[in-house]
Design a binder for these strands. Sequence first.
DNA 1: ATAGTTTTTGGATATAATTGCAAAAAATAT
DNA 2: ATATTTTTTGCAATTATATCCAAAAACTAT
Lengths: 158, 158
Amino acid sequence: MSNLTTNFNNKTIKYKQLLSNFKSLLKKNSLKFTVQREVILKTLYNSDIHLTPESLHQLIQKKYPELKTGIATVYRTLSLLEESGIATSLSFGAQGKKYELGAKKHHDHLICTECGSITEFVDEEIEHRQQKITEELGFKMSDHSMQIYGICKKCQNK
Amino acid sequence: MSNLTTNFNNKTIKYKQLLSNFKSLLKKNSLKFTVQREVILKTLYNSDIHLTPESLHQLIQKKYPELKTGIATVYRTLSLLEESGIATSLSFGAQGKKYELGAKKHHDHLICTECGSITEFVDEEIEHRQQKITEELGFKMSDHSMQIYGICKKCQNK
DNA sequence: ATAGTTTTTGGATATAATTGCAAAAAATAT
DNA sequence: ATATTTTTTGCAATTATATCCAAAAACTAT
Ligand SMILES: [Mn+2]
Ligand SMILES: [Mn+2]
Ligand SMILES: [Zn+2]
Ligand SMILES: [Zn+2]
């Protein structure tokens, strides 16, 4: 399936560092560093909310209209970023996918099925078990994604 | 977001029981029990692999050609089943969504990013932590989904 | 059983996501 | 710097998914 080579983990990093990582990833895979790719990376980096491909595209068109970035490029770049572990997507069931940069430290999501609000969390015990399970089953873990669905406090009190 | 009323949990159950659950769910939500909905439920139940909407549709057309079931109905019914917790979908990144019935006992997925093979597992410790975390954050958990991505044994030896 | 009411359906249409392709941009070689 | 090669891009075409709507089926009340 995926056949991209990567070698760095997602950490909380400065944009400069992220950009440099991205560049070396591209080089390692004989891909080119383009202005569109940088703009997409930067826009994701500067957003603290989860973005759909469409909303990301609109943001970019507004901020860099002279680029006339195509929606296809946004989709292609998001896939690239996800495959290489720089970004992750969050599936919202019916509501489709939203993306966020893995530049933040890894975390999982608690999603309210009433109002759609998202709470991020990490639990070391779970992280540890995941690693263990994977090993037991003979896999080599590269990534994981976990979503808990429920009703948030606010919505419970309605 | 979702506003369907449900009241039973997914267990390993006989088809008859599942069907009865489905019927009462429909009634409770003023939805109608139709031959298409039953065929979709039954076909999912009898499949032990994860199905895309398209492959499910093809299966049904082959087995029940006189029904001329529309693809739109398949999509609509899958959403209905997912919303009500009877089926779950598994996001395959680029490869789209696949569905399975929650009639089997709950489990999580280990997905090989090379060959796409899927291994199912459950870890009680993780299940327990998930519940605990949710409570700590003031949520009421209704469901969760967890996928671990990696390279399977077979693909490691290639 | 029949008629009235509500919901679902298939097919058409609309929108979202992916892919093919020729022109443009980036990287490399000279 | 310029030419050559490789990859990417935007747009168009395709495919996947969702929505609209009038006809059909399911349910309710008689
Ligand atoms: Mn995690
Ligand atoms: Mn689980
Ligand atoms: Zn909420
Ligand atoms: Zn494999």
